[in-house]
Design a protein around this nucleic acid. Sequence first.
DNA 1: GTGCTATTATACCGATCTGTATAGTTCTTG
DNA 2: CAAGAACTATACAGATCGGTATAATAGCAC
Lengths: 196, 196
Amino acid sequence: MAYTLTQTTASTPKRDLLLDTAADLFYRDGYHAVGIDKILAEAGLAKMTLYHHFASKDELIVAVLERRGRAIGAEIAAAIEAAGSSPRRRLLAFFDWHEHWFDRKDFNGCAFIRAIGEYPDVKSPIHQAVTKQKQAARDRLETMLVAMEVPDPKAMAIQLHLLLEGAIVSAHTFGDPKIIKSVREAAFALIKSASK
Amino acid sequence: MAYTLTQTTASTPKRDLLLDTAADLFYRDGYHAVGIDKILAEAGLAKMTLYHHFASKDELIVAVLERRGRAIGAEIAAAIEAAGSSPRRRLLAFFDWHEHWFDRKDFNGCAFIRAIGEYPDVKSPIHQAVTKQKQAARDRLETMLVAMEVPDPKAMAIQLHLLLEGAIVSAHTFGDPKIIKSVREAAFALIKSASK
DNA sequence: GTGCTATTATACCGATCTGTATAGTTCTTG
DNA sequence: CAAGAACTATACAGATCGGTATAATAGCAC
């Protein structure tokens, strides 16, 4: 028997369609701006189907965020693995993944950052889902920095994560996907500076 | 006759009260989450007063953002001036201003980043107001880096701005005002690395 | 077949949304 | 005093909000 570790609820076609449609609309227009009626019309589903799978709109949002977090985690892991075994190349692949993301025509900033922007209450499950995702990003960085034998990988991971978060925001603010270049240069300057 | 350079519309008591109240509520709960009725109730004003001063809610939001941008710009300029003439101390004062901001109990992330999160359309005047503010932040950094005689102040300003944007977001995400320490350390490591 | 669950369709709830209409009032300024 | 601007109060419009109620249908497992 196979265990699904992170997914708490079984996946069904209608549920997935609901999550996919909601994710697209939320990401394009925002969480408050998109009503459940719009999601249902776009997905071609009845309202009771939504409330059969989710207790509320907030619960749907949390499920969308967790699903997106899993998808992104898998994408990044694959991109890193495809880069081979060189720690440096793996870190570069991590940055490259962001560059490709910024270049997508539907890039619209970070769905997680935008979620806490609309639901600022720290205790809300929405905020918690975002914190979890951002911590995972830091952990990914730390793992790569350990492999690169950087002196203080935890501190360096936080610094590089700041650069990346800033880049996601700035790519959105300025509409400038090339900002990732500044991340790469600053990151390697920091690593070089710390390594000697 | 005194000219008001940046402010396009005359300041009146009711208009200011409207802007202050709206700014507080928008910052606390978000832009879509706060209706004009809530703002008017909180300010104790009639609905027609709002529509006498502003054509729409969107125009109110833009005015709030521009007012906030001016206030922050003035605060930061004062903090930097108070730090004396040492370029290094002035840059530290700039970081310190952010630290104090993160420490405020009403800190709730960046009102500008949250605004583009809720109004992602790049062509909207809301987005433009945010871009203007963020460019001003970069320019402030660049001016200080010129004074510090950093080799490529423009590129360095962008890098330090990434760190700061990341810190604002992370202070909000993780509820961690101490993240500014990582900015200070990374910033000076980058400057030192570039200066020799 | 007989249940059970998923799903649909439709109608409805009360609340809230942005914005307008209208008329009266207060305040300032010429 | 007179005129006009600022402001208030109230009512209303039409749409949309998240969520519920109810009844009927479809599909699948025992």
